[in-house]
Design a protein around this nucleic acid. Structure first.
Lengths: 206, 206, 206, 206
DNA sequence: AATGAATGAGTCTTCATTCAT
DNA sequence: GATGAATGAAGACTCATTCAT
């Protein structure tokens, strides 16, 4: 599906509303009104509310694997590669946090009418990339072998999300008042924390 | 608010439906029908859908702090205390995973009509408990000081949730087919992973 | 029906709420809550919401005819009798304005479930009293004969009600600000206006 | 707001139902069903039940002042002008008696959600027209000065309404059986009664 | 290609009343 | 005599989608 300017505008509006009020909590009326577009356009362009979310996810997630591949092939030792990888993941997720939020939420529902096939396929591909890196590091004797590789994803990604969903709470603890400084905090302190956590976990010494 | 048997029954039904279909995705009709109760009872007992969620959260979260306090005062060295604490947290959260899911989801919404004051107050209390333990460990020279204490919560809790929201995916990687074995996995492997992660992070050697 | 203290209390509360929000606009819940009485009591005491209104009307309208009879037998010439009668009517109606308001409103509805038999019977009796007085005056040659006797009731009563329903508007025109001064205005100026109107209408000179 | 054919149809249906059963006593379901229109159309066209009433009032009251102005500028002496004015007012009000009934009823409620600003503004304008006429008559020495001008409105309008709300009763007294003859009665006898009343009140002789 | 009107199913909540105690 | 729990019907309104143009 090739997206026109108007479609993209609608997706941007929808993304923000979904993040603010949830998928169910956002009506197509709201989206149409905020995007200054006729209500019928959503069905017209995307077919349905659900398919609009699919289009949004595709639009945002596209290119993740390719870029991550590139990042991981940058020169550096294994720990540096981990650093790059985590920094990239957090940055990418943070930039697309709105879609991820809706995606996570809808994905975990049972009788979902949203099609997550592509989303899952991408998850698998990304996991394989990470697994491959760690296994190579283990074979090289740099990384500890006593580690649950699949569970490192939840630690990286889950740390970010639990922080972000409760950012008000945590930013108070760090005495960060301004909303604008959150981005900064994510790219510096939070990223550093996750990198430190994973690297220590992978380290051989204990 | 003291809950009668019927109220508790309704809350149990609501909890599962909320977890399955989301708060907005669940109608009071559905709840009433599944609980085999007249629709009007929800308003009668709880006042509104939102207040029912508040009642549910109160019902489930009550006692957390007291129990956690108890767990942390069990004998053992600092690392054992961390082990106990994490095991307790994961167990408690896993048992109440349904409410936590709804709570997290609704909490992160903007124009929410659900009152989260108690929920937030509890978060703070729990955090203080953890912070106190770690600071004592640091003063005793057992724990590393180069650590972002507040961010350890997201690492513990976020790891669990991101695992659980995507359990289908991760259980495939661990070749666990049966739904019943998930509980087991959470209490053994996942708990071990989180304990290992946090303990390595807190360790002085690196 | 003999009314206990509690019943009367409920009727007083109901009366005010009906006047404020209309009969349909007032729920038995509201009445029960404001009267600090169990909801079931309304049905228990009166049978239904409608029958409660009937009880209220009976309670308030009782004695009207007897008193009016007495007023009209006071000594004085025919015009003085008219003065006394109008003053009495306005006073009585003003005192019971709340019930009259509901009664009027409900009475004019079509598919009403409220029984207005007694109310109508009383109307007729009152009319006969007035008619008799005027006819006597006409026979005595004091009152004009070119007058529609039945239509004088609407002129007396209607003037009061249209004034009262729009009291805010008219009190502004008379530069009366305080709500408390309305009673005074009704008993002096408004009563005088109606008396003047009817007496001129009945006068023989023109 | 420009009204289409369907909107006007809905308003006509609503008007009659409101008059019959009151505003609260009429459900949008009823209106929609009687007007053979989907329920959602009421919200779609008017926004809400309350706003529908506002639209109805606007639709019916529009043009009153302009027409009344015209009527009052017809040639004739002061008393003839009063005759014309009263005849016009009664005719206009009688034609729109349904809306007036609801408007009066809702206007006198306390916590009303209906916006009556325009309605009140119109009341004031109409009053000024009447006041001006009477004052000119007084200055010309034709009308008595011992008269409460603002209270003449309640006498004109209130007489009509109290008659109409109790038309069954009064028509019995006049031995008018057929509903169709009521219109006639209003335009002849009732109008004559009101004209006579007001003119006698304004006359200098007494 | 794009739209405003229209739809029917669905939302939560409140209603007056009754029932068992 | 009095009550709190419970009921089924109805309340106004909003939903995502479709249709005729």
């Amino acid at each position: 599906m090739d997206l026109g300017e108007k479609q993209i505008h609608i997706l941007n509006v929808a993304e923000k509303l979904f993040a603010k009020n949830g998928f169910d909590g956002t009506s197509v009326r709201q989206i149409a009104s905020e995007a200054d577009v006729n209500i019928a356009m959503i069905s017209y362009y995307f077919g349905s509310k659900e398919k609009m979310l699919e289009a949004l996810m595709h639009y945002r997630f596209e290119g993740f694997r390719r870029e991550m591949d590139k990042v991981m092939s940058e020169e550096g030792d294994y720990f540096e590669k981990i650093d790059h990888m985590i920094a990239f993941m957090i940055k990418r997720i943070h930039q697309n946090r709105y879609v991820y939020k809706v995606a996570n939420s809808e994905y975990s529902k049972q009788n979902r009418q949203v099609n997550f096939e592509k989303y899952v396929a991408q998850k698998i591909e990304n996991y394989k990339l990470i697994e491959a890196l760690i296994k190579r590091g283990q074979q090289a004797g740099v990384f500890s072998s006593e580690v649950y590789i699949p569970l490192m994803i939840p630690t990286v990604v889950g740390t970010y999300f639990h922080f972000y969903y409760n950012k008000k709470f945590f930013m108070t603890l760090f005495e960060v008042d301004k909303e604008e400084d959150v981005d900064d905090f994510v790219y510096t302190t939070l990223t550093a924390h996750i990198q430190q956590t994973i690297k220590k976990l992978l380290s051989n010494e204990n």
